[in-house]
């Protein structure tokens, strides 16, 4: 009879057994914010987390041509890699009955997302290799190609969150999320 007991325990673990979790072992090690910093690459839409540095579209063009164009195409319009997507253009294509071309310019609600994403994931083959200045500059270049900022506008932690994206008000919450 004794040998049956562990089996009964296993079965009840499959359904939820919160009581067992009351005595969690507390094995997390404290860490100082400075030691987290190399990993803390999230940028908020308000610009929280943006590092020092700056760049303009003029400066960004050379970076784009050298490090992005092979996949995203000249001036970001026609990607050479299917899933890479166009970064530029598509303005007006969200209108009803049109085939949408969703790009940074036509669709993205926040310019901060561009910095966040390029810094963490691009260029594809060597992500996290660009300096903050380079990410600001190439972001400025993509924003400029989309007609959102001027070629000499300085993009930095202060100005990037202030860039008003054309589709900023294009999003509504899904009405059927769980409470």
């Amino acid at each position: 009879m004794f040998t049956l007991k562990p089996i009964a325990v296993c079965v009840s673990m499959l359904t939820i057994a919160p009581a067992a979790l009351a005595q969690a072992p507390q094995l997390g090690q404290p860490i100082a914010p400075a030691d987290i910093a190399p990993w803390d690459i999230s940028i908020g839409p308000d610009g929280a987390g943006l590092p020092p540095g700056q760049g303009t579209a003029i400066e960004g063009e050379a970076i784009y041509v050298a490090k992005c164009q092979a996949c995203h195409g000249e001036k970001g319009v026609r990607p050479n890699v299917a899933l890479a997507g166009a970064l530029v253009g598509g303005m007006g294509t969200l209108a009803p009955d049109k085939t949408p071309i969703k790009t940074v310019g036509s669709f993205w609600p926040y310019a901060t997302t561009l910095f966040d994403y390029v810094r963490r994931a691009m260029p594809f083959q060597e992500s996290k290799s660009l300096t903050a200045d380079e990410v600001y500059a190439v972001s400025a270049y993509i924003l400029n190609l989309n007609g959102i900022i001027g070629p000499n506008d300085v993009i930095d932690a202060h100005s990037l969150p202030k860039v008003r994206m054309p589709n900023r008000d294009g999003f509504i919450p899904f009405p059927r999320n769980p409470k």
């Binding site: 999230s42 940028i43 908020g44 839409p45 997507g85 969200l94 209108a95 009803p96 949408p100 969703k102 940074v104 669709f107 993205w108 609600p109 926040y110 901060t112 997302t113 966040d116 994403y117 994931a121 294009g170 999003f171 509504i172 919450p173 899904f174 009405p175 999320n177």
Partner: peptide
């Protein structure tokens, strides 16, 4: 955070110009 995969992607463009997010 408004990451790329919750703005550019995984949002649902509706019949009008609005998109469901999250």
């Amino acid at each position: 955070a408004m990451t790329k995969d919750e703005t550019s992607k995984y949002t649902i463009l509706l019949k009008d110009e609005k998109a469901w997010q999250f």
